[in-house]
Design a protein around this nucleic acid. Structure first.
Length: 605
RNA sequence: GGUCUUGUAGCUCAACUGGAUAGAGCAACUGCCUUCUAAGCAGUAGGUUCCAGGUUCGAGUCCUGGCAAGAUCACCA
């Protein structure tokens, strides 16, 4: 039984013995005591005045006296207004830490027999990955690991958008302007293809302007808006791209071959970037294979009278009763729309991997889409519908506004990571921290520092919030950063290395003689003790930020300890061993928690 | 216009799901490297938690109404 549970049970009992009232344990909750007061846990007595017929202070006083009497783990208490602060003796904390050290897989839940699928990344194959994708990938990968730590069997998936008009645009531009360019060593495949996507847009805009001039000449009285629309629709490049899409759908050999060739280039590039980012997938879905799915489900919905057909043959669902609008599910010509496809894919996913929860890491511009998707699948009676969770995250904007691939105003993922690596190298060398490192070790360190800084930066923030990224200001290496946490881990490791060299034994040692703890030592133990709660909270809310912030707290606590008490320089042998032991436990938990946000911690830096 | 999200120190973010005097980092200022890594520690300053009501013993957190920013409301994906 956890410390909290023991106290809660004790409080329930105390209500009975002191006030002769029944208060079920579920109704009792504790909170951590604020730093400025003595104690570890606080019980708020304000709500129980009616029950005890006493003032909150008095209720607290009487409960406190009873708890000290009845519970070994409560040694003292104090009452401030309606707050009963309970003191847990140091020996209990020390004992707790020893128990934690003996626990295998501390903090991680046992296999719960449940499955969860996490879909993330979901790139388009017409352009390279950018900063927005980094947020997506880091979130998804981290959530997958957090769910695993919560006992789920996790399948990481990637739904690649490899077809559609936008893909045809880059293909067409390549065909027209590519002059047979082939993949070379100087340019990654995704970049090569991305360039043609930009090229398409440039040429297309020229055509639109040209056409607009002509239209204006012919229809001097036409509204600017209408003419522009007409020009945009009829520009030859777009018309050709549409034709190409039709050819693709009809499996035209030439178009298919080009499509395969260019997508191959892109995947080659993506693989490099994914590797650089440190994310991976268990299964990859391609929209080219799923885009025809879902039509059966549309028929099913029609049969069940959940959907309806309009005169032109298009199929809709009326969600106005749920506060939403009517939504198109199938075009008049019988072709699929996005929603058709996603309904089909939802069924396919469940068929492949019958899961309790299905997480979609997708930007918040699709909030409406996923709300509708879940609602429809619920109406259709899909058992998995309840478990659909759209992990909606805010856009990463630049000071200049939105990132736009077509206009080239994006922060490229590879470039950003490589810049960060260069910065890490520069900083490390300036600080003279690489003495004794081999070239290979130094390279690994720079990579870990760069990725750590970047991942922490993107994950410590609540996903819902949109964020502003200023490329002019590099991501910090000081203060509340990934590097700070890594640095403190390196310090812990330095202690452990030296302790080993000095043959300081701490495993399995009896620390019952430790009765005095410095405030920073006690803080660290409580933090370590809270690890399982944090893992659970992060899993329940799909929030890597919980883990990121927790990791920072751990690092900060050690930094404080470091400056306040001697560790290896401690004269008392038992105390010295205890502090090394504490360091070892903390390092262990910190490494685990950082791993949950995908950050590697260095042994030395 | 409807719906959803966000609004906390100059800036970037927290706040244990309704609890005590709202906490960190950056930037500014002041101390601290003959002791285990100063990518650090300690301190000073910085707040009408967007505004106005309400519920409650108690509100940054819940409700109502505003204001501001963003997203979305396509036979695009």
């Amino acid at each position: 039984m956890s410390i909290e549970e023991q106290i809660e049970a004790g409080i329930a009992k105390a209500f009975k013995t002191v006030f002769d009232v029944e208060l079920p344990q579920e109704k009792i909750s504790l909170q951590p005591t604020r730093k400025d007061f003595e104690g570890a846990y606080t019980f708020v007595t304000f709500p129980y005045g009616k029950l005890t017929r006493k003032k909150p202070e008095e209720t607290g006083q009487l409960l406190g006296e009873e708890l000290v009497k009845s519970l070994d783990i409560v040694s003292d208490f104090n009452v401030v207004k309606g707050f009963l602060n309970l003191v847990i003796p140091n020996t209990v904390w020390v004992k707790t830490l020893v128990e934690i050290a003996e626990e295998e897989n501390f903090g991680f839940a046992k296999d719960n027999g449940k499955k969860v699928m996490v879909e993330y990344s979901s790139p388009n194959t017409n352009k390279p990955l950018h900063l927005g994708h980094l947020r997506n990938n880091f979130l998804g990968h981290s959530v997958a690991m957090i769910m695993e730590a919560n006992g789920y069997n996790v399948l990481k998936t990637n739904l690649v958008n490899d077809r559609g008009i936008h893909i045809c645009k880059s293909m067409l531009a390549y065909q027209k302007f590519g002059q047979g360019e082939e993949l070379g060593p100087s340019l990654k495949g995704d970049k090569l293809v991305g360039n043609y996507y930009v090229k398409f847009d440039q040429e297309y805009k020229k055509e639109v302007n040209l056409l607009l001039e002509k239209l204006k000449a012919v229809q001097p009285n036409g509204k600017d808006e209408d003419l522009k629309k007409e020009a945009e629709q009829n520009a030859p490049l777009l018309v050709e791209a549409k034709e190409m899409l039709l050819k693709w759908e009809n499996k035209d050999p030439e178009v298919t071959a080009l499509w395969e060739k260019m997508n191959g280039w892109v995947y080659n590039g993506f693989d490099q970037t994914y590797k650089l980012m440190g994310v991976e997938f268990d299964k990859i879905y391609y929209e080219s294979e799923t885009y025809l799915l879902g039509k059966d489900i549309v028929n099913e919905g029609l049969e069940k009278n959940l959907f309806f057909k309009k005169d032109d043959g298009s199929v809709w669902v009326d969600l106005s009763a749920d506060g939403l609008d009517e939504k198109l599910l199938l075009r008049g010509d019988g072709t699929s729309v996005y929603m058709t496809q996603d309904m089909g894919t939802a069924d396919l996913k469940y068929k492949d991997f019958p899961m309790e929860k299905s997480v979609y890491v997708v930007g918040n511009e699709q909030d409406y889409h996923f709300k509708v998707l879940q609602l429809i699948m619920k109406k259709l009676g899909r058992s998995y519908a309840e478990g659909i969770f759209h992990l909606s995250y805010g856009m990463v904007d630049l000071p200049s506004g939105k990132m736009k691939s077509r206009e080239g105003t994006v922060v490229d993922a590879d470039d950003l990571i490589n810049d960060m690596i260069a910065t890490a190298k520069e900083r490390t060398e300036a600080l003279g921290k690489i003495d004794g490192f081999t070239e290979e070790e130094a390279k690994v360190l720079y990579h870990n520092l760069a990725l750590g800084a970047l991942k922490y930066y993107l994950l410590k923030v609540d996903p819902k919030k949109r964020m502003l990224f200023n490329p002019e200001e590099s991501i910090d290496f000081q203060g509340d950063t990934g590097v700070y946490i890594q640095y403190n881990f390196a310090k812990m490791n330095s202690i452990l290395r030296k302790a080993k060299a000095d043959n300081i034994e701490f495993n399995g040692r009896d620390f019952s003689g430790i009765t005095d703890l410095a405030a920073s030592e006690q803080d660290i133990i409580t933090l370590i003790y809270n690890f399982p709660t944090k893992v659970k909270e992060a899993g329940d809310t799909f929030s890597p930020s919980v883990i990121a912030n927790y990791s920072y707290d751990l690092a900060k606590a050690y930094s404080k300890l470091w400056s306040e008490v001697p560790i290896l320089a401690e004269q008392n042998e038992e105390l010295k061993a205890f502090r090394v032991f504490l360091t070892a436990q903390l390092a262990n938990v910190l490494k685990k928690s950082m791993a949950l946000i995908g950050v590697q911690v260095p042994e030395r830096m």
